[in-house]
């Protein structure tokens, strides 16, 4: 059987404004199957909005989102929505673990509640997923509040990958972590995405993270993609916006709005 030629995920002409502020201005972002795209950009440039629109948490004002060639605007019923969402996994910036559930219940949440996997089997799979991200079985019965920020991120990653999604989104995966823990999370992300062979979309302003987890990097500025290319080219992109951002310079075409 031949592989489909269409992108696994595609945002086409997506526009989104909040009042007078245009956050995304006709953005086109195709992501090929099995590739890892990292979107970089300053704060308030629309990175989070992009990911929320891609995953269906927010509707665009205009434009289309295609997942595996299917226009998400055609999703009507809750059953279709559930089937559609089952393709996704997401690691949230603050992990977004459910406070009232133990770590294994968090990791197994989709298995138990959406996939109707028996609790015993779901627990075993959750503990297996925790082990893959370097968390011992002893944390399974703890609550999120009892874990450090780094451990919560790992548990969030285990939850994102446990049901083997086709597309995984990473929202600022290393924010709030020390450099060593950030690198551990980056390694785990690369390892899990490779193991699952899935498509990944990440947003970050951590350049070490972007270089490590991305096959490609795209830069979002003032609602548009101003550069996109292989991650290896990021340091010699020839783009003034990218150069200023990557080198963290105050001088350049990007003006910090106060």
């Amino acid at each position: 059987m031949t592989e489909p030629t269409h992108p696994m995920l595609e945002l086409r002409g997506v526009r989104k404004a909040f009042g007078d502020k245009v956050v995304l201005d006709g953005v086109d972002i195709p992501v090929a199957r099995g590739r890892s795209l990292v979107i970089i950009g300053g704060s308030g440039q629309g990175k989070s909005v992009t990911i929320k629109i891609a995953i269906g948490l927010m509707a665009p004002d205009s434009g289309q989102v295609f997942v595996d060639g299917e226009d998400t605007a055609n999703i009507r019923t809750s059953a279709e929505r559930a089937r559609h969402n089952a393709r996704f996994g997401m690691l949230f910036q603050g992990a977004a673990l459910f406070d009232s559930l133990t770590i294994w219940e968090n990791v197994a949440f989709r298995l138990i509640n959406a996939d109707k996997v028996p609790r015993k089997e779901a627990r075993d799979r959750a503990i297996e997923a925790l082990a893959r991200v370097g968390l011992p079985a002893s944390v399974a019965n703890l609550y999120p509040i009892e874990l450090s920020g780094g451990m919560q991120k790992r548990a969030g990653l285990a939850r994102a990958v446990v049901a083997a999604p086709q597309i995984i989104f990473f929202d600022e995966p290393t924010t709030g972590l020390d450099p060593i823990n950030a690198d551990v999370i980056n390694d785990l992300i690369v390892e899990q995405v490779k193991r699952l062979g899935c498509t990944a979309v990440s947003i970050t302003h951590d350049m070490a993270s972007a270089r490590k987890i991305g096959d490609e990097i795209a830069m979002l500025h003032k609602g548009k993609i101003v550069w996109r290319g292989p991650a290896a080219d990021i340091d010699h992109s020839g783009n003034a916006y990218v150069d200023q951002f990557v080198n963290g310079r105050a001088d350049g075409p990007i003006k910090v709005e106060v």
Binding site: K52, I55, G56, L57, S78, A82, N85, A86, F88, G89, M90, F92, Q93, G94, A96, L97, F98, D99, F109, R110, N113, A114, D115, R159, F169
Partner: peptide
């Protein structure tokens, strides 16, 4: 409200669970 502020409600969506039902 705290679940909304910490993106736990968004997480429910991504885990194929309707927050209204849950």
């Amino acid at each position: 409200g705290a679940m909304r502020a910490t993106e736990q409600i968004d997480a429910l969506h991504t885990l194929s669970t309707d927050p209204f039902r849950y």
